[in-house]
Design a protein around this nucleic acid. Structure first.
Lengths: 140, 140
DNA sequence: CAGCATCCGTGGCGATACTG
DNA sequence: CAGTATCGCCACGGATGCTG
């Protein structure tokens, strides 16, 4: 458990790289990287990016794919992600309207990060459940 | 940039693995993996995990390291992460009280995912800013 | 120092209704 | 179908005060 033995070893000096993210003076325009991070890690942002990594979706299709998202939040999430340059919105001038959403190259990069996290989460569900039971049991 | 050339290429069939996360019937105990994901990607959860990956921290020390976090939210975040088995809380019975927080092996895994995402975000800040200016400019 | 309890405002978010 | 607009709730989260 001592060493992580993983890819980008976050050893000495790695904290430096996140200094802009971690250290931040309140009452200030808010550090840009935090805003981006909050968009990407937002409740629906994560799931939308993960879904779009698989393939492109139409609006309602995406709404059905991501269980529990309201129409409003999906639209809002998509607009935010589009503005940040992660999502490409392709509105075809036909009737009935057809709008396809897909990831930009930048969005693919973001989605891959998020996707790895999501995958990891699903793999570790049991470990977390065990930890919770231990935690809850310890204070009963 | 066309191909991702990164670690776990999320090609065909990768969506299957996230089916439990994406597809979820509302009015139900809420899928476990989503809960975990929301803890990890929560506003302060991300930053706390990233900070603790560098080294262990005492409470106030961590509060100072993570700019903008309130005492309440830090305590709450730490308790959630502890319960999920990500954070180890070491309360030393001394006066004045001293409590050290560090990552468990499971927490290190989580933090590495989150850390990679945070790093990526900082690297792409400029690309996102450019995208936003393009987006905002297009509708003016 | 560590952190729980309480109060309370803001806004995130869902539900509903309406438009192109 | 693909959204916008509006209303209203409640819970996220900050500020303050108290305890061990």
């Amino acid at each position: 458990m001592a060493e992580s033995t993983k890819s980008p070893r976050p050893g000495e000096g790695s904290g430096e790289a996140l200094s802009a993210l971690l250290a931040w003076d309140v009452n200030q325009p808010m550090c840009p990287s935090r805003l981006i991070l909050e968009h990407v890690t937002s409740r629906w942002g994560v799931l939308v990016l993960a879904a779009l990594l698989e393939r492109s979706y139409r609006f309602s299709e995406l709404r059905r794919a991501v269980g529990g998202v309201s129409e409003k939040m999906l639209a809002q999430t998509l607009r935010t992600l589009e503005r940040d340059g992660f999502v490409d919105r392709d509105a075809k001038p036909v009737i009935p309207p057809r709008v396809d959403y897909s990831l930009t190259p930048l969005g693919i990069e973001a989605a891959e990060q998020v996707w790895a996290l999501a995958r990891w989460t699903e793999r570790r569900v049991d470990a977390v459940r065990a930890a919770r039971e231990a935690y809850d049991g310890a204070r009963a």
